[in-house]
Each structure stands twice: as structure tokens, then as C-alpha cells.
């Protein structure tokens, strides 16, 4: 067991630093797919989160509960539903995007949007109501008001985005089902790990897993540094 892990670590470092073309391609492609999906999710979730946090309307709690439920949406379920929609025999079959990167972006967007929505709504709702009144009392325009709200909650919002990103980059079920794990086309790190494991290439699978964990850690580290910067002023 330990030997396998050490071999994997060695091979991972070699693959990473020798810039193996296939591994590099898969890694960059993974970042591209998950990055695009996360950006789209932000564009959908943030305005909705602002609406949910700032406005009261009938059924609001229901919508929030749906978003919270969606946080735990199993990727394979998303994969199945997106497949049924996008297959040639499905209602959106004529788009012909099944087994393409676009289908993967759609599936990952469905996975990460509820996560970002639920967490950013919670983040925005935590802002003191009195602060809003004060901002308004000081004569801020609605646009300035929204901007200040986002600024006030920026660290929690960033955490929400990272959670969405993390959810997408680590899922394998949906990417496998709607992307098809096609070499040089729709293969991402997670699906490549599954393939190499079933091939019995545990060293390559481990190497890929180290790259995936490194990416996830780099993103988390970056977020932690930004978050912690603000506390420095408090103590000194």
C-alpha cells in the first residue's frame, strides 16, 4: 500500500514537471470546464442570492429550501437527467451537444449553482439589517447599495464560490455520463482516475489524484490567505 502511494507520488511529480502532454492537457481542460461552469453559476446564483437576501416575497423560504436541497444533489443524478435531456432521443437532442465539453459545462453548472446560491444567500442574509438602513440613510443609490452589500460579504461569497468550484472539480459521475470520458476531448482528471484505476494502472491514477488534490489545495490556500488578511488589522 505504502509502496504504491510513494510510487504514485514519484510518478505524479515526474508527470507534472516533465509536462507530460496528455496529463497537462487533461489538467488544463479540467480547469477550463470547471472554471467556465463556476463563472456561469456565479452569474446565475449571485443575482438570485441578492434577490433572496434583500427582498421578501411569498414562497421565499421554499426557494431557499430548494437551494439547500440542491447543495446535496448527487452528481450522478444530475448526469442522468442531463443525459436524458441531451441524448439524441431526448428533447434537446437536436442541439447535438451530448458527449461534448458543452454538456459537461451544463452538468457542472447544475451541480455548482445551488451550492453557490445557498451559501451566498446565507452570507448576504447575515449582514446586519441596520447596516442596510444606514447605507440607505446616507443616500446611497440602489446600485451603490448592492455593491456595498457584496463588498461587505465578499469573504463569505468567495467561500461560496470556492465550495461551488470544489463541488464541480471533484465530481466524477456527471462528467463521465455526459462527457463520455473521450480521450483528448472530454477527459477530465476525475474520469481519467477512474479509467486508470480500472485499467489497473494504480501509479498513473495516484499521480492524477495528486494533481487533483494539489489543484484543490492551491485554490483553498489562496482563499485562506485572502480571508485571513483582514484579521491582521484586528490584532495589531
Amino acid at each position: 500500500m505504502l509502496d504504491t502511494v510513494i510510487d504514485g507520488l514519484k510518478k505524479g511529480l515526474i508527470l507534472l514537471f516533465s509536462l507530460d502532454r496528455e496529463v497537462l492537457g487533461i489538467t488544463l481542460f479540467t480547469l477550463k470546464i470547471t472554471g467556465t461552469a463556476t463563472l456561469i453559476s456565479i452569474a446565475i446564483a449571485l443575482p438570485l442570492a441578492l434577490l433572496l437576501a434583500l427582498r421578501d416575497f411569498p414562497g421565499k423560504k421554499f426557494v431557499i429550501s430548494l437551494a439547500n436541497l440542491g447543495m446535496g444533489l448527487p452528481p450522478t443524478v444530475v448526469g442522468l437527467w442531463v443525459s436524458l435531456m441531451l441524448w439524441r432521443s431526448g428533447p434537446l437532442g437536436m442541439l447535438r451537444i451530448m458527449y461534448t465539453p458543452a454538456a459537461m459545462v451544463i452538468a457542472q453548472t447544475v451541480i455548482s449553482t445551488p451550492i453557490i446560491l445557498a451559501l451566498s444567500t446565507a452570507a448576504l442574509q447575515q449582514i446586519d439589517r441596520k447596516l442596510r438602513w444606514q447605507i440607505m440613510a446616507l443616500g446611497a443609490s440602489p446600485l451603490q447599495m448592492l455593491f456595498l452589500m457584496l463588498k461587505e460579504a465578499r469573504y463569505s461569497l468567495m467561500a461560496a464560490v470556492m465550495a461551488g468550484f470544489g463541488g464541480s472539480i471533484s465530481e466524477v459521475g456527471a462528467s463521465m455520463m455526459v462527457g463520455g470520458n473521450i480521450q483528448n476531448y472530454t477527459r477530465v482528471l476525475t474520469t481519467a482516475i477512474v479509467l486508470e484505476t480500472s485499467k489497473g494502472h494504480f501509479d498513473v491514477a495516484l499521480a492524477l489524484s495528486f494533481i487533483l488534490m494539489f489543484l484543490a489545495y492551491a485554490a483553498t490556500l489562496w482563499l485562506t490567505f485572502i480571508q485571513q488578511r483582514r484579521y491582521r488589522n484586528v490584532y495589531y
Partner: peptide, 22 residues
């Protein structure tokens, strides 16, 4: 109005994003 316009904007981004990807 603002929230609505931001949503429409983001939807356009999504749609054009998908188009560009396909």
C-alpha cells in the same frame, strides 16, 4: 429593476457562453 437586468445579463452570458463552447 436592477436585479432583473443583472439576471437577464447573466442569462445572455450563459447562452452566449454555451454557444461559444459548442
Amino acid at each position: 429593476f436592477l436585479v432583473a437586468s443583472v439576471m437577464i445579463l447573466s442569462l445572455t452570458v450563459v447562452l452566449s457562453g454555451c454557444g461559444a463552447k459548442t
